[in-house]
Design a protein around this nucleic acid. Structure first.
Lengths: 239, 239
DNA sequence: CGGTCCCTTGATATTCATCAATATCAGTGG
DNA sequence: CCACTGATATTGATGAATATCAAGGGACCG
């Protein structure tokens, strides 16, 4: 028996407040809980879904992390996002009915699976769930807007600083340390996400370390000077 | 009296099929129509809202175009999006309750205003409206994902080609010509959006023209070689 | 008609990608 | 335990792409 796959009810889940159940009352929560599936944890590099797959479920990361990417003909995949505990993967497929990207575990990762048809049917009954779903999607749109300000920055230093601040703030929201964390993705993934060569990512990390902004050891990152990093990122909303 | 501000019911609106009412049945449509406000057209450069404003409404572009941007301390605003007829502005504020960016008309523009509290209340009654709202937000998330693949491209040529294709496909969806259109935003805005200097935008346009990919005259763009543009953009989902 | 903003183009400086070599780390099997 | 292997990361050298500085032309607006 694998402890990490033990069934944890939504009400006792550590990311409860960031997840769908937040704002759903006790009685309704039990019904929501009834449709949540909790598969075995996934090994690193396993896929949650592939681009083009029929949309069945959205997935909440419970532990570990996920990257999404768009594979391309020439084999150069483009990373479109990273997801940490409490974040929801697969929302991009709701309207289209098919996944617009592939989703892959960056490390050993466990998720909750929420079959969307059952979620949708349940929302017919529970107006609070319908509202909550709308909130979740609205939050996602808000986040995407913030990411636009990261990817729209003109220099490698600005983009990387803004990305680190974005990760930091997301981890903080989830109750993790905001100044020290382990990047579960490779330099290559970061470069693909930000539109930079992976060597550039590596160099900027080294430069930030020399400047006293960061301590970087492999994938472990410690932010030494949050304010300085904000200045590098550019004042435009790097919170 | 201004003809463009004449009251057009949702059912007769030209962007009906891209807008909220799509999929709402006749009887319910009348009720939805009842809460839609149709303000006078806005002059170019007028703001729909400013960052930080309380969230009251979402806005559907009926004619003209809107840009959204994040103003920053040093005065260097960062553009986060462009919106054409049938597209909905303001969704990023739904969950937070305050606008995360400012929205400005790029030309004479008319919108429909949908007061969200009334929309939300109506959705309690009309399950079809609740579903439709979810669809709208899901579509927005899907679009944002596509934008990530534009902004994540490594070169100026790729980003600009991908952006043009993205605009083209959005205009086509709305029944406009997909190979010939007028950009309502400045080179500066495009540069800010894509993380490029405005001179680079200008140069790449000229280069594309010399290569026979485009005809560019001021803000008027004609795509001469759609397939070639797709190749430049890189195969990764530039549709 | 004059002024302002926007766009284009050129020259130069800077940043970034690419190529390449080396180092490090996580597994794997002897 | 250690050697071996392949993936990952760092760093340097070089060339290409992009930003910056600068000038001039053209469109739009009062």
């Amino acid at each position: 028996m694998n402890l990490t796959s033990a069934k944890v009810a939504c009400r006792d889940c550590s990311v409860h407040q960031l997840c769908l159940p937040n704002g759903i009352d006790e009685a309704d929560l039990a019904r929501l809980d009834g449709i949540v599936e909790r598969p075995q944890p996934m090994a690193a590099r396993r896929h949650l879904y592939f681009m083009g797959d029929n949309f069945r479920s959205v997935y909440v990361v419970r532990s570990g992390s996920i990257k999404t990417y768009v594979p391309s003909l020439d084999g150069v995949e483009q990373v479109t996002g990273f997801y940490w505990p409490g974040e929801i993967v697969g929302l991009e497929a709701i309207t289209i009915g098919a996944h617009a990207c592939s989703a892959q575990a960056l490390e050993r990762t466990s998720v909750c699976e929420l079959p969307f048809s059952r979620l949708d049917a349940l929302a017919d009954d529970l107006r609070s769930l319908g509202r909550r779903l709308l909130q979740i999607l609205g939050r996602e749109i808000h986040r995407d807007q913030q990411v636009f300000t990261i990817l729209g920055k003109p220099s490698a230093e600005q983009r990387i600083a803004a990305m680190l601040l974005n990760i930091s703030s997301r981890l903080k929201q989830r109750g993790f340390a905001d100044h020290e964390f382990r990047l579960s993705m490779s330099r290559h993934d970061i470069g693909s996400y930000l539109g930079l060569a992976y060597e550039t990512v590596s160099r900027v990390f080294s430069r930030f370390q020399r400047q006293g902004l960061l301590l970087v050891e492999h994938r472990q990152v410690c932010i030494r000077d949050m304010a300085g990093l904000r200045i590098v990122a550019g004042s435009a909303l790097a919170r």
